[in-house]
Design a protein around this nucleic acid. Structure first.
Lengths: 167, 167
DNA sequence: GCCAGAAACTTAACATGTTAATCAACTGCC
DNA sequence: GGCAGTTGATTAACATGTTAAGTTTCTGGC
């Protein structure tokens, strides 16, 4: 019933490697997609993408913030951020000015219009999150967060994981 | 020293919502990125993207497979898959033919050249994975996999999570 | 055996991810 | 005080994510 539809499934393996079922990136991707599938419709209904929403939330949490720092906080690469900021500014959801001490730096802040939009989206978004927490278990969710953080730490710390390195 | 550089950080919150630190999608994204950052250089050195690698791996594990089934297995959307298959076929890494019984269906398989490429990439890739498993802990990694699967299950099962739904 | 509707892909259009290159502004050093 | 090197940010170019529309082929009912 749930067997693969591929022909010759039985021992058709041609290379010595883990199966997808043991792929960590895949597992993380699948889990994330399952979560995001819950949020996207709500965001889309308000004309927002996931990344735009991340930026608005980050801006709403502070008075003002520089572009580079925002990229770090919202976990976006510079080029993506540049494009999105251009759009959000054009839509009047954010405001930007230049740092007087360092003309290279851009300083961003959310607009009143942006805050209103957040107020419209947040409730439903929070409810969806609560639903996930309820179904998965709040305690378990906290444990998952902890394990993900630790994974990030154990990887980020040191090691290039370069096989040919002496170490 | 490590405090936020944003001005007025203290209680600058303007909206009632969770902080990013409690965002599940962000946590999953960060963890995944930390992992992928380890693999990407190796793949890129062989002219492969993450998704192209997923497809080759999936094809190497079977004799032949249909496009739709491959999309499911490699967790890619149809449009992305179409583009990637076009490129991989042009590079001679895969072969495709049409199902004689149903001319709509495309049947894919990996080529000898594709298998050779996998053989070149896989060892290093496996070593990187082993390094992650060693640093994070094999037992813990297995537990994380389990929790991610359960998260996916608890979300995927039923519920639209629509706040306005009666349920 | 024909035709409406479904199914399997593919194309299209727009947004983001990713790396490299560019550009303007700043910093340190001589 | 001027220039090499660095930094903050954007632009460029290509690949994928995402949703909608289009194409070809099947399938079922008449």
């Amino acid at each position: 019933m749930s067997e693969s539809k591929a022909k010759g499934t039985k021992d058709a393996r041609k290379v010595p490697m883990r199966d997808f079922s043991q792929s960590l990136p895949m597992a993380l991707l699948r889990a994330r997609e399952a979560v995001m599938r819950q949020f996207r419709p709500n965001l889309r209904a308000h004309g927002l993408t996931e990344q735009q929403w991340r930026i608005l939330r980050a801006l709403a949490a502070v008075d003002a913030i520089e572009v580079t720092e925002l990229a770090r906080v919202a976990f976006l690469l510079g080029p993506s951020l540049s494009r999105i900021l251009r759009d959000l500014e054009a839509r009047g959801l954010i405001a930007r000015e230049t740092d007087a001490r360092d003309l290279r730096r851009g300083v961003l802040s959310i607009s009143t219009k942006g805050l209103k939009l957040i107020a419209q989206v947040a409730p439903n978004s929070e409810a969806i999150y609560a639903s996930i927490a309820r179904r998965y278990g709040a305690r378990k969710l906290a444990a998952l967060h902890k394990m993900l953080d630790e994974l990030e730490q154990s990887i980020g710390t040191d090691g290039e994981t370069d096989v040919d390195a002496d170490e």
